[in-house]
Amino acid sequence: MVGVTAPAIDGQDHRDEVVRAEGVAKHYQVGSNLIATLRGRSALVKAVDGVSFTLKRGESVGLLGESGCGKTTMGRLLLKLVPPTSGSILFEGRDTATIDGADLRAFRRSAQLIFQNPFEALNPRLTIRQSLAEPLENAGVPRAERLGLIEEALELVRSPSPAEILERYPHQMSGGQLQRIVMARALILQPTFVVADEPVSMLDVSVRAGILNVFRDVRERLGLTAIYISHDLALVRYVCERTIVMYLGRVVEDGPTEEVVHEPLHPYSKALVTAVPVPHPDQSHEALPIHGGAPDARNPPSGCRFRDRCPHAFERCAVEEPKPIQQGNRTVYCHLFDS
């Protein structure tokens, strides 16, 4: 385990905290070559821009938001796959920026990622056995024990006929089977923290429920702390007791899923919730009942990011960035709630 709870900066007891993000931002310079710069085409994409939250041990939290709002980037930041532009991420009390060497190997064992696209997450040249053995090799598990652990992990994700698929290659398998293997690889070293990045969005509707149930069961059985990334509120509601709603690189609302669903506070959450009723198959549930086009992370509006699409926007929204406001169990980032 990584550095068992260093004393926290604010002197409080954070022992049950697994992850703590403090003002995390990730900016990308796009089109930064000479020609683009000369033509004024280079831009700063603020994929994630000042996000703070904490995850308690065993908690499962949905990260909800439209495409391009920075969910995947946030997940990659939490797993130390990209360094933050500013802000800090603490894992079990330790700043991930300072984790390296043997600690990094330990961190890689405890923090795992389930990929969005199982067809791309496995090396096509390696057999399933080789792919599943990779984390074991890296963790120094003796050769003789590997097969047993691989079979155990495959059983954990309820992969059908584990013995037969071991020598297969990814292209010989279906998306649902592959996603189970991707999950098995993530779980094989018994991590404490898992980020699942839209794990069913690339799969046939028919196999989604199976994968989601496995994820839910495993999470409970292993007591995982988990982040479930999705743009689909219904899925988040099925898997997570808490939801963080993101909009253009920012958190807009954070609280218990049922409360967010039944009584959304932030105007954007309201829009998401109203968009959910799926019973009418001809009604696209992507379209939000708010005006304005899809947001662009290149030129976010001043003040509140959502104000140009918000039906309640007033002068203050253009000039002042909303601060977190506590409303019962929830945190909302909106001037409407500032008394």
Partner: peptide
Amino acid sequence: TRAYVEAARVSGSSNLKIVFRH
């Protein structure tokens, strides 16, 4: 930038291993 390269990193593979294996 392939996902399976990132997967190898998450699995704890070293740069050397990623380069040679993947």
